[in-house]
Amino acid sequence: MAKTDLKAAVIAGTVAGIFSGFVKLGWENVLPPRTPARNAVNPPQHLMEQVGVPEKIRNATYTYSEQKMPIAGFLIHFGFSTSFAILYSVAGHYLPFIKAGKGSLFGLSIWSAFHLGVMPAMKTVPDAKDQPIEEHISEAVGHVVWMHANDFISDSIYRNLTAKQHN
């Protein structure tokens, strides 16, 4: 087995996480996971309330195309995406089973752990049995698509970074 270039894996995961965060946002525009009423205070906003983030920070926005966009919510979204993309990129070199199905199983594991386990346990979202089926479908398939993007992007970047070292 070839030696893993940890720096290249972290860089690849970071870039993949940013891009895949956009993929997941796009996915949620096509198949919104929550009803408008449930999205009035979405999970990132509710989590910030739960941990005591001041209202001024959690409601901070920037305006683009006459629409107010949530800065703190996006930081959580992209932070989550990038953190797990780095984990996937690095761990996949040491534990190849993580990359089964081009990230599908990893994505479903993340969805299950957070959307069915951690967030309901924290009361950030309703219990899994009380979430609409549309939410489960959107989030489960969205996590597969998100991880496919991470797999493709991080592998491509890692190959490019490490190929340059050998030339």
Rank of each mutant, 00 (worst) to 15 (best):
G73M: 01
M48A: 13
F74I: 08
T82F: 05
K68F: 02
Y64C: 11
I71T: 14
P96H: 10
M69Y: 08
A60I: 02
A91L: 14
G73T: 02
E28L: 01
F78D: 10
P54D: 12
T35L: 10
E55T: 12
N42R: 08
A85H: 04
I71Y: 07
N29R: 15
K68C: 09
G79M: 06
V51T: 09
T63N: 08
L47T: 09
L75K: 05
L31M: 13
R58D: 00
P44N: 03
F78E: 10
V30R: 02
M69N: 13
Q45A: 13
G73P: 09
S83E: 11
F84G: 04
T35S: 15
H93M: 07
H46Q: 13
Q45N: 15
P96E: 06
H46D: 12
R58L: 05
V51I: 15
G92F: 03
L95Y: 14
V90L: 06
P33D: 03
V41M: 09
Q67T: 15
F97S: 14
G79P: 10
V90T: 03
E66D: 15
S81I: 09
V53C: 02
E49N: 08
I71W: 09
G79Y: 08
P32M: 07
P54N: 11
M69K: 13
A60E: 03
M69S: 11
A60S: 11
H77E: 06
F74C: 06
V90D: 00
F84L: 11
P96K: 07
H77F: 04
H46K: 15
V53M: 01
F97M: 11
S89D: 09
S89F: 04
R34A: 12
Q50L: 11
W27C: 02
L75R: 05
Q67S: 15
I86S: 01
S81E: 05
P70K: 00
I71D: 07
A85S: 15
E49V: 02
E49L: 04
T35V: 06
K56E: 13
F78P: 03
I86K: 00
P70C: 05
Y94M: 08
E49R: 04
F97N: 13
V41E: 12
A60P: 00
L95D: 12
R58M: 01
R34K: 12
K68R: 10
E49I: 08
G73F: 01
L47D: 00
E49C: 02
R38N: 13
R34G: 04
E55C: 06
F74S: 09
G52Y: 00
P54G: 10
Y88C: 07
V51K: 01
P70F: 00
Q45R: 10
G73D: 07
E28F: 11
W27Q: 00
A37G: 10
Y94N: 09
R34F: 12
F80N: 08
N42S: 13
E49W: 01
L87A: 15
F84T: 03
S65Q: 15
S65D: 14
R58Q: 03
